[in-house]
Design a protein around this nucleic acid. Structure first.
Lengths: 335, 335
DNA sequence: TTTAGCAATCTTTTTATTTCATTGCTAATA
DNA sequence: TATTAGCAATGAAATAAAAAGATTGCTAAA
């Protein structure tokens, strides 16, 4: 077991290191806790044996190990009060009635990334619970038509389709009517299936060029549902560069590359509700970063917000920020 | 005047430096041109006096000055043949019929940034020549309505609007009808004006809550037209990190910050047709980069594609690539 | 006009030296 | 038994000095 004093020391070290990015010396801790540096040193040896602290070399101060950070976020960290300034910046968004939910979230993560200097990302903004509300087709010049798909949550996707000239406007119209009649109300991720098994058999009898037409629509829907799900929107993508530990350009490159590859971001998606903290190797990104993330589900629109920073990130502040956003997102959305 | 041999030397130096990022020595040039290093050195002195070459310090090789690069791109550079590989990658896009113009352009710049390791950006993808084709309104739950604006070129924008509950669905419908009747066919950038002077006076007589309703739509349109114009889409935003001259993290930060600020990108917009090359200080970004850009105008949809790289960028290759894209964008768009 | 030859210049690399913060340990102290 | 003072040991970081290497500019010869 870890004693009360050891906890205090660990807490001071983690918080000091977060603030300064420099190894913390026993002397430094003396000033905060009432005992001599030698005492602290003895304790530090114990904490090191427990794998909660590390040294860079023999005579450097201590820095938290990955386990040290974890112990800190799980047991020592206290929720931090929001500063008035931070709150103000976020409120300007929540009070802006002309923004819809998606835009509000986007704006919030832009602000978070700006005030924290970490990278923020929203994943899969639109939900699978979105149901098809309407399909609309607008003929453009030549043989182009514009297909618009609208869901009941107000998500809109569109696509320009090129039809062989053999297909008449009448046939297109008929197809759209059919889709609207049969598929509206279906959850977006089941639309492809429903098209295949319910629309295709019927369309045959109504439309002569049904194969071309059906395929075109099928492709369009398919693409729509897939782009919907692995949507990632970033704020402060290059903020890592501002962190003192990332002066090594190769490290930064590695991290930024991970950002390009949406899979590695998406992997972090599955988790319980509440706010989850992943330190270093737990992140699926690199050992040098931490991720704090949370799911939101507001009127069926669900997604994940994640903040990515150095391991040395201000966990308490970010948790508070995320919490605040989560609470306020729900509150204003119907207003 | 500059002699033929001096031109040859300058050409070798620029191209060698582009390849290696290392100052070019007189000895190096000997191997390519048939004369002694001393002769080359004499010529280099002249070229330096003409401000076409520079030295880092007394005993380093020469590197091209900004003027040197400019002279090179204006007078010495020969168009480079596309490699089969590059062509192949781009053709897979141009041949993909299911992509519309905007997507084709986006994909192309992604590929350019990938194969060149420079940053690519499209500016103002949608044109002011877009004319309003249709306004569509879909009521969602509560007092939310979804407004969709469609232009004749197939550009779609949408926005969720929150209406005071005093406004009835009937009134919304009436307003939309009116807008469709009066404003359809108007170029997008003139819509706001037309709303103000033609719709507003009439709507008064039809709709009791006209003020709220009018304002909501006016705002939505206004936002739409502004987001339309300063649209920037990036490919390989962080590719600068891959260039050997940008090991200095502060330099990279500076450049990436410029990217965030869309204004500085937009400034580079005004220019004649054809392919324009801006070296260093001409770029409006920083002295350390060059920009190669070109306008496209395909069926009235116009925009700018720009490639941003180090001054030491492969001008000939990029020009050829842009040229190829420009030609092929036009060719396939109606297909 | 071109070239060989060579000292001069300045960077880069290597090696050595010093400085400094911090630890671990020992022995004294409370 | 827990705490503390004291001090040598450690190794990084800063500074200095020396050596190596590349390339030029200039001179004089071809």
């Amino acid at each position: 077991m870890i004693t009360k004093r050891q906890k205090e020391i660990l807490k001071v070290i983690v918080e000091e290191y977060i603030k300064t990015a420099k190894p913390v010396s026993s002397n430094h801790i003396c000033k905060k806790l009432k005992c001599s540096s030698a005492t602290i040193r003895n304790e530090m040896v114990t904490l090191e044996e427990l794998h909660l602290l590390e040294k860079n070399h023999f005579a450097s101060g201590r820095i938290p190990s990955e386990e040290g950070y974890k112990y800190y976020v799980d047991n020592l960290m206290k929720p931090k009060n929001m500063t008035g300034e931070d709150m103000l910046k976020l409120q300007t968004i929540f009070r802006n009635n002309s923004l819809d939910l998606t835009d509000t979230i986007k704006k919030s993560i832009e602000i978070i990334s700006e005030i924290t200097n970490y990278t923020a990302v929203v994943l899969g903004g639109a939900s699978k619970e979105n149901k098809l509300k309407k399909v609309e087709v607008v003929p453009l010049e030549d043989n182009k038509i514009l297909a618009i798909v609208i869901t009941d949550k107000g998500v809109v996707e569109h696509k320009t389709l090129y039809l062989p000239s053999a297909v008449s406007n009448e046939e297109v119209k008929k197809t759209v009517e059919l889709i609207n009649k049969l598929v509206v109300g279906t959850p977006i991720n089941e639309v492809s299936e429903k098209l295949e098994y319910e629309v295709k058999p019927i369309i045959k009898d109504y439309v002569s060029q049904y194969e071309v037409l059906y395929n075109t629509f099928y492709d369009a829907f398919h693409e729509f549902t897939t782009t919907q799900s692995d949507n990632a929107y970033f704020g402060g993508r290059t903020n890592m560069l501002k962190q003192p530990e990332f002066t090594n350009i190769d490290k930064v490159k590695e991290i930024l590359n991970k950002f390009e590859d949406k899979d590695s971001i998406s992997k972090m998606k599955e988790e319980d509700n509440g706010i989850n903290i992943y330190v270093g190797s737990e992140t699926e990104l690199t050992d040098d970063v931490s991720v704090i993330k949370t799911k939101y589900n507001i009127n069926g629109e669900e997604g994940t917000i994640a903040i990515i920073g150095p391991k040395r990130m201000e966990y308490d502040r970010v948790v508070t920020l995320l919490d605040y956003i989560k609470n306020n997102l729900g509150g204003t959305s119907g207003k």
